[in-house]
């Protein structure tokens, strides 16, 4: 299982998409490729932008539409982070359904 402490890389407020992209490319996608579980831990974060979360999870959802929801978990999300993650997850699924 891979665990990523997002704050360590993105700071207290997640807005830098380059950081999100790096986590996606270096951790999330390789783990999903190997059917490994991933925990994205937002401990200590006050918020995130939709762009940040999109850069983090949209491609993994697109590439692994079933595996993503089984293998990736979100931990220690405050209500704002949770809502933004749900915004992205909802619109990604909406767009993938024919």
């Amino acid at each position: 299982m891979k665990r990523v402490l997002i704050k360590k890389q993105a700071g207290e407020f997640g807005e830098n998409k380059d950081v999100a992209k790096r986590i996606r490319l270096e951790t999330v996608l390789p783990a999903l490729g190997k059917q490994e579980k991933v925990v994205l831990d937002f401990d200590g974060m006050s918020g995130v932008t939709q762009s940040f979360v999109h850069a983090l999870i949209s491609d993994p959802i697109r590439k692994y539409p079933d595996g993503f929801f089984d293998l990736v978990s979100f931990k220690n999300c405050n209500p704002l982070v949770k809502t933004v993650v749900e915004i992205v997850s909802d619109y990604m699924q909406e767009s993938l359904i024919a």
Binding site: K21, Q50, S95
Partner: peptide, 24 residues
């Protein structure tokens, strides 16, 4: 409008862009 990005025709954008920022 939501889901309109300069980087893609798709409503969900690309891995890096969704077209949601100005809408929000």
């Amino acid at each position: 409008m939501p889901g309109i990005s300069g980087t893609s025709m798709s409503q969900s954008g690309t891995g890096d862009n969704a077209g949601a920022g100005l809408y929000i």
